[in-house]
Design a protein around this nucleic acid. Structure first.
Lengths: 142, 142
DNA sequence: TTAATAGAAGACAAATATATCTTTTATTTT
DNA sequence: AAAATAAAAGATATATTTGTCTTCTATTAA
């Protein structure tokens, strides 16, 4: 599993929330959890983190809920970094803390292009793009 | 983290063991754990699994220890599958159990080439190759 | 055949990730 | 101002992963 479960939920939640935002609507925790098939309270914690990290925005009270300021300027990489950090793009595949070009592990040079590609692809894919696909009913979140 | 910690230790251990095997020597758990910087007893459990799964071989008693039958015919992918299973090459990046070309998640088509590349690279890289590099003192296991 | 060596196996412990529940705070509507 | 709504925050619970400890079994050498 390349991403933590929290991060998987986070991505699914953000895409769903953005799909509401583009319709000028906000989404409650309960609605989001239902839409993506995740545990309600746990999803709340994750959304809290995403809000603190400015990936999402939220408002309390009636008609409140979560929304996203600009889906076109938030990328998958931003969600991943907010929840799992940057390590998946940099950490040694066999867990060496000192792994680098100067002191490489036996997989260092094989892994570098793969990791770079991952970062590039995650950095290119905007939430807006993912929402467009989701809204066309061609893609799924649960 | 793409691989579990157990799997990271497993790969490092196998490379070290193979470096002994090519010198016609066997390696004890204690020696292995020291060489790769891993907890002794936990490493023992992992080696046990690798032996059960035929990635390694072992013998008890004096002059016993772990060794590998044919380093040139064991590939990184075999170690990963023995410890973490095949899921890292197939599982949906956002955790959908039903994700497929028929019912894709919003990252399905971006992830497929990355996963395929990972499987190809892991399937190409033999333990023997990794040992050669390690023995040249160009690469490290801790 | 006894002592020493070394992996196998099982029970147990700690740390981390995942999940739940309750209370508090902020906002909106009436 | 009061009631209702919804997120924030904190405490707690469960599951999984990581790590340890003890006993058992097999092998070798003296």
């Amino acid at each position: 599993m390349i991403l933590s479960k929290s991060c998987e939920y986070a991505i699914r939640a953000v895409v769903y929330i953005a799909s509401k935002t583009v319709k000028e609507e906000r989404a409650s925790i309960i609605e989001i959890a239902e839409a993506i098939g995740s545990p309600v309270a746990f999803t709340g914690k994750i959304l809290q983190t995403l809000t603190r990290k400015k990936v999402l925005a939220s408002s309390k009270g009636p008609n409140g809920g979560f929304y996203i300021i600009n889906p076109a300027s938030v990328y998958l990489v931003d969600i991943v970094r907010a929840i799992d950090g940057n390590e998946i793009f940099t950490a040694c595949v066999i867990g060496l803390t000192t792994c680098s070009a100067e002191k490489p592990c036996p997989m260092h040079y094989q892994m570098k292009p793969i990791r770079d590609q991952l970062r590039i692809d995650f950095g290119k894919r905007s939430v807006y793009e993912m929402v467009q696909a989701f809204e066309n009913n061609n893609y799924f979140l649960k």
